[in-house]
Amino acid sequence: MKSIKILMAITVLLSFTACNAQIKNAKTESVKIFGNCGMCKTTIEKAGNKKKVAKVDWNKDTKMAIITYDAKRTTQDEILKRIALSGYDSEKFLAPNDVYAKLPDCCQYERKAQTVAKVETPKTEVKEDHSTHNHSAMTETRQDVSQLKAVFDNYFAVKDALVKTDGNTSSTKAKELLTAINAVKMDKLTTEEHTVWMKVMKDLAFDAEHIADTKDASHQRDHFMPLSENMYALIKVSKTETPTYYQFCPMANDGKGANWLSKENAVKNPYYGSQMLTCGKVVETIK
């Protein structure tokens, strides 16, 4: 028994040195990489490994990776970047969101590092921070721009999600829109804006709430129509830095047609998504 153990120990040792021996000027470091399961392990190691240059050994329980690399030919950053590009966050790099979203369900680890970013993803909070920063430096009108800007930006986010027929995202974005609507301080608006705001505020909140409450894109689109019309009325009297395009698709709303606002003049239809992405035209450019 004992001899078997010793033999095993020796083979393990040998094999370890054997695979290590390939990498010259070896430097070994231990870093945290976020992930869930065995599948993650395969992806992480495959992305990080490079013949004779880098070797990654990730432990799914501790989330720690032992990285051995040729310090003359690569850096820890290069390896971690490759791993992040395969979908896995570390303490230095965040994976692109679209790559993360494409990971298999079992690998959709909780993005701990992303919480840093989440603080600002709800745009309202950033905007508040942004506007307080502006308070001191900018003039009155500039403040008003950022007052409603959060509302517009979140509206565009909802629109973009509907273009992709992504009910989940439009729901969360609508929630943020609602927060932004409630955060508007009416006394900071110009007279013109104030008048329109009083008229549309309730409807805006109503439609935003309904979009937020469902994940069904077709129901969301029903509410997106009045939402867009009210938003149009509002943006007409408000100053924005970049032009906005008022677009129209004659086929939406059962052939009655419907409008929406976009920051790009290229048509991306939020009522049909990929089914009829370019149906529609720009009817007005608002500056």
Partner: peptide, 9 residues
């Protein structure tokens, strides 16, 4: 400043 958010290649 801070952690690096990558853009997908």
């Amino acid at each position: 400043n801070g952690i690096k958010q990558l853009q997908s290649p």
